[in-house]
Nucleic acid binder design. Structure first.
Lengths: 275, 275
DNA sequence: TTGCGTGTAAACATCCTGTGATCGGGAGGC
DNA sequence: GCCTCCCGATCACAGGATGTTTACACGCAA
């Protein structure tokens, strides 16, 4: 099957995708070096991050729509406990990791009881702190996948991950699970994808040399797409490279220019790479 | 930094109700004194607890229906990492707190990434450990609440979580507890649910590879639904993905011929294939 | 023209799913 | 306390949809 992303033996690859990818994290601290190290790690993990050298107001934190907050209590000053309590109280869905210098048991107990999710003592190893954040965020995220399930439309094609269903205008495309995943990948990537890349991201592991599965699936997809809207071609071959998804009028073989920047009816998205 | 010795007094005031009350916690350790101290604290907090001097099998842990597990990795032996991974993998809803002697950063990172919620180094203060457990459990329980006891209606189906009862129009559906939970989950999620997801949210722990319980229950549900309203099929199979609850006669999947030849389907009547 | 990459088609292998049956355990009735 | 019934877990099997592999024709590039 295809869904078996979980425990498939022939998939030595994917570690469970770092939990921080695509999340928003803020760090309130005063050590520029520390924040820089973290910023680098966050960036590497595909995590949207923000460094604050002074405590933001609770309202400001709310506005940031954060998933996690790393907080050095010593930055806040005398009202640190109150601040921590207000933050945790107002943002129950926010993972708060207190990362502060040496502290007493009583302080740690107090912090945790006020709502902090974890207490890390400085100096600490960046990777360990990252893991603590991940652990905290993991639970919050576990049941709120719906946000990834938003429908997206590319030209006439509409993709609904929540229904595992694709549409051309009003009509629905009858796609199998794997076909759908390929269309989804192609449609959401506004660029040429190499076969190896498609295979790896859909199958979950590296493509064997000489494997033509991708080609076969592309053919099936073209067939089904053509059956519904013969006037358009959606999947374009880039000889020697791979495939690209883009709604364009069915070109006659000529296609003199490869990049064929056909006047493309406005809808050619703001060109601003959506990714 | 955080030297501030502000009022360390236990601040008897507004600390929230202890989160461990009525929860089930197990401790796997070999230090009788340590376990006794914890046991006393757990008892004082109204927490159902269990002390194990050797690692229970994963299945045994499942059977205990725990909310949290305190684990000394050194008790497990050479296969401790594997054990930790299996436990976390099978019980995604369990808060796992590793409480072990001195360790390296790499070990802690590994433990956290395998799924542990927190890592506490021995020797540790009992109260602090309790707080860490509470913090971990707090997160887990947070999203168990969203269950609303409000009746909801999807098409002809009415679901009353408060009565554990479902209706088709006026007639009541005689469902067993588990059947009801599955219908409820499916009906309230307006999307395709994968088997693993259904299993995890209904049974409370991860589905074992090859388990077909969900299929069997789906069959029973279809049987009962069909017995009352033969004209509709509510549970739709998405081959290779999972199931989806929808009152309409499946507008998409296998409406007609899969290969849907070029010519549009002329005789496209309702064709309400129930399967 | 040659060589290689791609399109197409069909045969083939896989494994997913529906189904009926069985077994063990727990709840409830007596 | 014992018995019975019902529920839930697990298994085996069959049918069939899906995914993979093989084979060959075609077109692009050099």
């Amino acid at each position: 099957m295809s869904r078996e992303r979980t425990d498939e033996q022939p998939a030595p690859q994917a570690l469970p995708q770092r939990a921080l990818a695509r999340l928003r994290v803020a760090v309130i601290d005063r050590d520029p070096g520390f924040m820089q190290v973290l910023a680098n790690r966050f960036a590497a993990l595909g995590c949207e991050h923000r460094s604050l050298s002074s405590p933001a107001t609770v309202e400001a934190l709310v506005a940031m729509r954060l998933n996690a907050l790393v907080l050095d209590l010593s930055v806040v000053g005398p009202e640190s406990w109150d601040y921590l309590e207000r933050v945790c109280g107002r943002l129950p869905g926010l993972a708060v990791i207190v990362c502060t210098g040496p502290s007493s048991v009583a302080q740690r107990v107090r912090g945790l009881r006020l709502g902090a999710d974890a207490w890390v003592t400085k100096p600490c190893h960046a990777e360990e702190l990252i893991c603590v954040i991940e652990a905290a965020v993991r639970r919050h995220r576990r049941h709120e996948l719906p946000q990834i399930d938003v429908a997206s439309t590319i030209g006439e094609i509409t993709i609904r991950p929540d229904l595992y269903q694709a549409y051309v205008g009003e009509r629905s495309l009858e796609l199998t699970a794997r076909e759908f995943e390929i269309v989804q990948l192609l449609a959401q990537s506004d660029r040429v994808l190499r076969r190896e890349e498609i295979y790896e991201r859909v199958w979950g592991y590296a493509m064997a040399h000489g494997d033509r599965s991708v080609d076969v699936f592309i053919r099936k997809l073209r067939q089904k797409l053509r059956a519904i809207s013969p006037a358009w071609s959606y999947i374009h071959t880039h000889f020697g490279v791979g495939y690209r998804f883009a709604p364009e009028p069915e070109p006659d073989v000529e296609a003199a220019d490869h990049r064929a920047p056909v006047e493309e009816p406005g809808p050619e998205l703001p060109a601003a790479l959506s990714r």
